[in-house]
Design a binder for these strands. Structure first.
Lengths: 265, 265
DNA sequence: CTGGACCCTCCCCCTGGGGGAGGGTGCATC
DNA sequence: GATGCACCCTCCCCCAGGGGGAGGGTCCAG
């Protein structure tokens, strides 16, 4: 039996951290003296401590660590770890994108964007829609787009999406992905939706999607300086995207904000 | 002038977060109504908000974001950003190591390690020593090893290190890197040190350094089950390392824990 | 003038730890 | 047997960077 200090030296986890893991039910001491509260660990707990240490180095939340340890089954365990590794990888992808975007954001002289006002009539389209969180939206987009592609066989235009402002303001909100078609089918999540008529302030973003905030910013500035206000979800139209060409500089995304005129102050 | 809600929609930062950034002095509203406390932002603040957003996506601490924004000079700014990118990369490296190690840790049947007890006499060596934090120790090691290599021209054995237990228990502690030599020189941080005689429990770890905790664990179990206790800093000896071969499976690190016999309970 | 959308501040919560206070325990030495 | 000292205990406050929600003021259209 080892005292907490000895176990700390052997496991390379701090005494404080060991106590916390005890409280969290992650790594219970083999015995606890009832009278004094002294914790005592067995040498057989060292490997467990090491696994926890590694998982924490990978920022696996304590609750997940617990689930991993509880599942004695190596299969389940391997699966849970693999899950986290996948999360790490997508995180990595996100980081790469943000780094690239930041470089461009800090680069001098971004070219100015043209903004125009356009009246869009109501249209009926094939759509997939859901309430999603902002950090799930990329994955959701991929799935929804694949399902749309499979369901719509006679598209009459580029695909697009509508994203509620709450999605960005509160971290979750309604998202709708659509494909225009003459006869919208109904299959799986795909169903017909009639998009309302709106007046849109529109600009076109060229290049990586990571930089799209720049276009949003320009569009926002234009909307405000033209005495307009935002009324409803953003519309994105994917004119040219990864589905069309692998050259990011050729990609074109149209973004439009529904607007209405406000009285000048 | 935009209200906080409008600015939130245009910048894709939540209202709460904007208020926090105001409190932190990161992104001050253009004006604040004295009577009502209402914040008002200008459209020219949208690009700044976007830069902050990107930096935060990269987990740049708010204080660093502030420094980056304050330094109007694009040169300094680029440098600060590059600094952070370097940190991200080393983080990435660490993650890669932990992932690999975790896989091996969860792999079935690690081969058992041989442990032996060895009496080591006092020796005088050329050493570099410092108080370091556990997350700096790899960088410190690299620098110290390079300085030792440059200063010692007639090594009489493999290099080694002594690491205080506090380094692992408290996150910082004393570290000493040495090279045995007949005439220890004195130059820069390099100076002669006499390592005390100790009785060491010794085992040899093969392969990636990331896995060394496994060897520590085995050694700890051996020490305890042989009724010994730890007395002093760990000693590592780098028998075969990256300096000798690029094949990680050929690397050999000897780890030794100074021990003394304890009375049986 | 009333309702609803919007804004304000303030406090508590989360994650995974660290610092330190104040007090009890185990053991060797005097 | 007392004393010192290392070690152990619990409890509370602190950090980042937010989110949730209470309680109350403000703006504007109908």
């Amino acid at each position: 039996m080892l005292t907490i200090g000895e176990f700390s030296r052997l496991s390379h986890l701090s005494v404080r951290t060991l106590r916390r893991y005890h409280d969290a039910g992650l790594l219970e001491p083999a015995t606890v003296d009832e009278a004094t509260g002294y914790r005592h660990y067995g040498v057989d707990q060292i490997p467990t401590a090491q696994v926890i240490h590694r998982l924490r180095e990978l920022d696996v939340p304590l609750s997940d660590v617990q689930r991993i340890l509880r599942s004695g089954d190596p299969q389940t365990r391997a699966m849970l770890v693999a899950d986290h590794l996948r999360r790490l990888e997508s995180e990595l992808e996100r980081t790469r994108g943000a780094v690239a975007s930041l470089r461009r954001l800090l680069a001098p002289e971004p070219p100015p964007l043209d903004v125009e006002l356009r009246v869009v009539p109501a249209t009926t389209v094939a759509a997939v829609e859901d309430d999603v969180a902002v950090d799930e939206v990329l994955a959701w987009y991929a799935g929804a787009m694949a399902e749309l592609d499979a369901a719509v066989d006679d598209p009459t235009g580029a695909p697009g999406g509508l994203f509620d402002n709450e999605l960005f303001e509160d971290g979750r909100g309604h998202a709708l992905l659509y494909r225009p078609t003459a006869r919208p089918p109904r299959s799986g999540r795909v169903h017909p939706v009639t998009l309302p008529a709106v007046e849109l302030a529109v600009t076109t973003h060229a290049g990586e999607h990571d930089d799209i905030e720049v276009a949003y910013g320009e569009l926002g500035i234009w909307v405000v300086t033209n005495a307009l206000a935002v009324a409803g979800p953003v519309r994105e139209t994917y004119l040219v995207g990864p589905r069309d060409t692998t050259d990011p500089s050729a990609w074109r995304t149209e973004i439009g904000w529904p607007v209405f005129r406000v009285a000048p102050h």
